[in-house]
């Protein structure tokens, strides 16, 4: 077991810097999810920790060692790849044992470890099969088994569930979480799926364009997003952003409506999550409904802020019916209103 420290980490391909001065501390036994849209550099960051990409600047510590120059095999890590990367010509047993065999661990010990991991993952009946004879979920288990038998200090997951169907993904997600809690191995997990990120991670690192937008627990990210990007990325449906102007403690929306809650001064962006909008008789936020989505447990109303083109989504619990064109008034609790500076996109306190 070990902690991981990223210090001022930079990755550049030629003159193009793709990761900009990333700092972060991952505690021993912690499950950290790196999340962001495609192309944000999250996989690159993970691969740098794995040793599959060179480090342009800064340091990576695993435990008390600087591992910048170490080969992947010497970093005491195990990685689960998106497409599993099982060796197709080896049986499940051989796949799991290959790394141990290279380390010249005794046959008995290898068998013991492989069978133990197979029992944990319930893949014992498939040990003698070839990967192509297994289903996607079973291959995923084998890939995890291969990581477990190594008994590493760190698990690295590179979007391991994205090749599975939706139902299996939910099931495997829970299993990965349970497994990680049971083994207590420090883990880094990369995904673009924010639900996966929220449910799996002790903490989330939100990456955008090679910058860390925010690094915190899922609830911190949800309740107090530091930037507009995080605010829009975490939570589904995404947060509503309304351009507004603040003067003397009063927020004026673009349609002239006024709210008594305000942060900052001048032009701001007011962010309110769809689920935090409540119907109120005297609500200041008036929405013209254009479309309704009945999801059973809740209802999504798509529309625009009255008198403007600003699109809005409202999520109401239970069944609500509203004909297109209906105008509804909403309000939100002060702690659920987030203010951002339009130029820096940062949160205003």
């Amino acid at each position: 077991m070990a902690s991981i420290t990223l210090k001022d980490l930079v990755k550049a391909y030629g003159d193009t810097e793709v990761l900009h001065h990333i700092d972060g501390q991952i505690e021993d036994g912690e499950f950290v999810v790196i999340v962001g849209p495609s192309g944000c550099g999250k996989s690159t960051l993970l691969r740098m920790v794995a040793g599959l990409e060179t480090v342009t600047g800064g340091e990576i510590h695993i435990g008390d060692r600087v591992v910048n120059e170490l080969e992947p095999a010497d970093r005491d890590i195990a990685m689960v790849f998106q497409n599993y990367a099982l060796y197709p010509h080896m049986s499940v047993r051989e796949n799991m044992a290959y790394g141990l065999k290279i380390r010249k661990i005794s046959k008995d010990e290898i068998n013991r470890r492989v069978e133990e991991a197979a029992d944990i993952l319930e893949i014992r009946p498939y040990l003698e099969r070839k990967p192509r004879q297994l289903s996607g979920g079973q291959r995923q288990r084998v890939a995890m088994g291969r990581a477990i038998v190594r008994d590493p200090q760190v698990f690295l997951f590179d979007e391991p569930l994205s090749n599975l169907d939706a139902k299996l993904r939910v099931q495997m997600r829970l299993e990965i979480r349970k497994l990680q809690q049971k083994l207590g191995v420090t883990s880094i997990y990369v995904t673009h799926d924010q639900v996966e990120a929220m449910t799996l991670g002790d903490r989330l690192m939100v990456l955008n364009g090679g910058y860390v937008e925010q690094f915190g627990t899922p609830i911190e990210l949800y309740d107090r997003p530091e930037t507009m990007f995080v605010a829009g990325f975490i939570g589904s449906p995404a947060m509503n952003f309304l351009p507004a102007e603040v003067a003397n403690g009063v927020t004026t929306l673009s349609n002239g409506a006024q709210l008594g809650v305000a942060q900052g001064q001048g032009n701001v962006v007011l962010g309110v999550r769809p689920e935090h909008l409540e119907p109120q008789e005297d609500g200041a936020i008036e929405v013209q409904v254009q479309l309704m989505e009945q999801l059973g447990a809740n209802t999504l109303l798509h529309g625009a802020l009255k008198g403007t083109d600003t699109e809005m989504v409202v999520s109401l619990p239970g069944h609500v019916t509203a004909a297109p064109g209906t105008e509804m008034k909403f309000g939100a609790a002060p702690e659920n209103m987030h203010f951002f500076a339009p130029d820096t996109q940062k949160r205003i306190e």
């Binding site: 599959l52 080969e71 992947p72 095999a73 195990a78 790849f81 998106q82 990367a85 290959y98």
Partner: peptide, 12 residues
């Protein structure tokens, strides 16, 4: 490529 990367992590 993952095959190579996987083998590198396995120490080959």
């Amino acid at each position: 490529d993952e095959m190579l990367e996987s083998a590198r992590i396995d120490g080959a």
